[in-house]
Design a protein around this nucleic acid. Structure first.
Length: 647
RNA sequence: GCCAUUGUAGCUCAGGGGUAGAGCACUUCCUUGGUAAGGAAGAGGUCAUGAGUUCAAUUCUCAUCAAUGGCUCCA
């Protein structure tokens, strides 16, 4: 007999070789029906695998993320089985579960497949699922594994098997489909009641663009039809928050083929929001000792040869502009740092001048691959809220901390709670991708790790994700559809000061090399506004919104009074307009609601007589009658509340 | 850049080898109204661009451009 410890701490005795499924059955039939897999001593395994020694066992169901993962992983096999049945001879790459569902990379060979084929794949999957096919695990020798896929002619699986050790190779068989797989899997296919093949995409084998592109099919499955329907509704809801859609509806920005791909045009409403954000950050930065600078949009090719960017990105940039007579070459600036280095060099610097913090909302241009462009989040021309801090090595940590404080201030002001802090360090294996000395890299990486630890924020560390010139800390936020975007960034750089031979005179009257910190709390104005739109569904905080109030006269008779109210509001620094169309009040309210204008001020006979406004709040409803000054105070108080936190 | 899909009025979309339609928005007129759509009339499109097939192409074919979902990339 062995002791099985359940999550509630209770210990039960079972025969050696008991399975999680049997344990579930011993507790209740209902539980047994719902068990998808099991966590045994922190390892997730098939619910049908024997347990041979004392263990902690957690039964995993649809309510556990790991249970879902098991179901989706098995669903990937089910989809592969369906595809193999419908398109004999196709070859398979990998097919893992993902955050929402699963995918399988498939080489369809001669077949061409499009989304019109999804239905029959789904139908076949459901057909197999209803057969209650079991997932049978089999340990196979490397030799036998190679033999099987050699006969099948699947070079992708052969490649994977060749990288595995003999003795750790397992196959799973469901129906007629046999796959190389570590598992775990469902006991059988019966929990899969609703399936949806979501999309198809090209995906390079092993993520390498020089290798063959396979067809990736994305799908998701559920134990109940209703849950699938709800998921699809949620997807539709999320799409309504898409910044591209809201940007169009609220007239925030647009694109024109005549201007060019990835080159956003900010419309007045969007420009107001962006300006407000810039003003806000400028004030914060002024208080934090930053100095404004302005640099041109192009720079001589030699500047980028000095910085090292020319070698690294020269051929992947917009190509140089040439002067007609001299033939001098200029690049559109892809970043502001080389210009700022030259500003640093414009006069001798003493240690007393440090830290020197040079800030600029600098517009940069990068040639992004056409397939990568995406609304405002990935563009070819954008404005960074950039600054470069030049300091002594001793000041790095404090400066880094100071920047983090600014990022947190911004996130707090805009109520961004759900962000990821990622620290990107060098690839441990391949250090040839980076410029700069080992010693300097170690110093920089250590400083970041220390500050991160002291900040108390949850961080994730990624090796191999560093910029080529230094390690960095990025602040990532998810968009409406769960895609991650990098916003703020802080990067330590020991390399550019070397390349530009930056110096300062120390208290010892010797020359020393400063350290540089690149930082952009918003990241880019374009991307930040995009994420802000998706987080707020276009209901911007009062201090940012383009139009804070709209005055709705009941009829033309009250136009004069409406103008008086408008004048008062404008004098009180409140952004407002009058809806003077000859429409009914209900219509004006509806339109203002849809435009997400925070306050609607209804004025008619009553209001004119008493010198008041009837206030309706967007999304909330009637707030009652306010004296003009009382309404202005209400707005000012709310704006202050939001901005006070920030200062 | 690669794979798949898409491109018809300002927006959302229907249509289809014989030179185009709806709703909303817009303009004008009527209506002067109290918390999410008042009524009528009118104006709007080389059917993304270019070539080919055809008596005839917005519709079929090809190319180009752009957008969408991914992959790769992202100083």
């Amino acid at each position: 007999m062995i002791d099985i410890t359940l999550p509630d701490g209770s210990v039960r005795k079972y025969e050696r070789g008991v399975t999680a499924l049997e344990i579930a059955q011993s507790i209740s039939e209902g539980l047994a029906r719902n068990v998808l897999s099991a966590k045994v001593n922190d390892q997730v395994i098939d619910a049908t695998r024997p347990i041979n020694e004392n263990a902690k066992v957690q039964l995993l169901t649809w309510n556990d993320q790991e249970g879902k993962a098991t179901m989706w992983h098995s669903s990937a096999h089910l989809m592969a089985e369906a595809v193999e049945n419908l398109y004999p001879g196709v070859k398979f790459g990998i097919g893992p579960d993902i955050e929402n569902g699963f995918y399988y990379d498939i080489d369809f060979g001669e077949y061409t497949i499009s989304d019109s084929d999804f239905k029959k794949i789904e139908d076949k999957m459901l057909e197999f699922a209803r057969e209650k096919q079991t997932f049978q695990r089999e340990e196979v020798s490397k030799k036998d594994a190679l033999k099987y896929f050699n006969e099948k002619g699947d070079e992708y699986k052969l490649e994977l098997i060749n990288e595995l050790e003999d003795g750790e190779i397992t196959f799973y068989k469901s129906g007629d489909f046999v796959d190389l797989c570590r598992g775990p899997h469902l006991p059988d296919t019966s929990p899969i009641k609703a399936v949806k093949v979501l999309s198809l995409a090209g995906a390079y084998w092993r993520g390498n663009e020089n290798r063959k592109q396979l067809t990736r099919l994305y799908g998701i499955t559920f134990p109940k039809k209703k849950e699938l329907d709800e998921y699809l509704v949620r997807l539709e809801e999320a799409k309504k928050r898409d910044h591209r859609k809201i940007g169009k509806e609220l007239e925030l920005f647009t694109f024109s083929q005549n201007v060019g791909q990835g080159l956003p045009l900010w419309l007045p409403n969007g420009a107001i929001i962006r300006e407000r954000l810039e003003q806000f950050l400028k004030k914060v930065q002024k208080d934090a000792g930053y100095l404004p600078v302005i640099s041109p949009h192009i720079g001589n090719v030699n500047l980028y040869k000095t910085s090292g960017h020319y070698d690294k990105y020269g051929s992947d940039s917009f190509q140089p502009i040439k002067t007609p007579i001299e033939g001098e070459e200029f690049f559109l600036k892809p970043m502001n740092c080389p210009h700022h280095c030259e500003i640093y060099k414009s006069r001798p610097v003493s240690y007393k001048d440090l830290p020197l913090r040079l800030a600029e909302f600098g517009t940069v241009y990068r040639y992004e691959q056409s397939g990568e462009l995406h609304g405002l989040t990935r563009v070819r021309g954008f404005t960074q809220d950039d600054a470069h801090i030049f300091c002594t090595p001793d000041q790095v940590k404090d400066e880094f901390k100071g920047v983090m404080a600014i990022v947190m201030k911004i996130f707090k002001a805009l109520d961004f709670k759900d962000f990821i802090v990622q620290i990107s360090l060098r690839d441990k294996e391949d250090k040839t991708k980076y410029i700069g000395s080992d010693e300097n890299w170690d110093k920089a990486e250590q400083a970041i790790m220390e500050v991160a630890e002291e900040s108390g924020l949850d961080t994730i560390v990624e090796y191999g994700e560093a910029a080529f010139y230094g390690p960095k800390m990025d602040f990532m936020v998810k968009d409406a559809l769960g895609r991650k975007w990098q916003l703020g960034t802080i990067q330590v750089d020991y390399n550019l000061p070397e390349r530009f031979e930056l110096e300062y005179t120390g208290s010892d009257n010797e020359k020393h090399r400063p350290v540089m910190i690149h930082r952009a709390p918003f990241g880019s104005m374009e991307r930040f506004v995009a994420v802000l739109i998706e987080h707020t569904s276009g209901k911007f905080p009062l201090w940012l919104t383009p139009e804070q109030a709209i005055i709705l006269p009941i009829s033309e008779k009250y136009q004069k009074y409406a103008e008086k109210v408008l004048k008062f509001l404008n004098n009180s620094e409140i952004r407002a307009q009058i809806d003077d169309r000859s429409e009914k009040t209900g219509r004006k309210i509806r339109d203002a609601e849809l435009k997400r204008i925070p306050f609607m001020l209804i004025v008619g006979e009553k209001e004119e007589e008493s010198n008041t406004v009837s206030v309706r709040q967007q999304g909330t409803g009637d707030l009652g009658t306010f004296e003009l000054q009382a309404f202005a105070d209400l707005i000012h108080k709310e704006v202050e509340k939001a901005t006070e936190n920030n200062n």
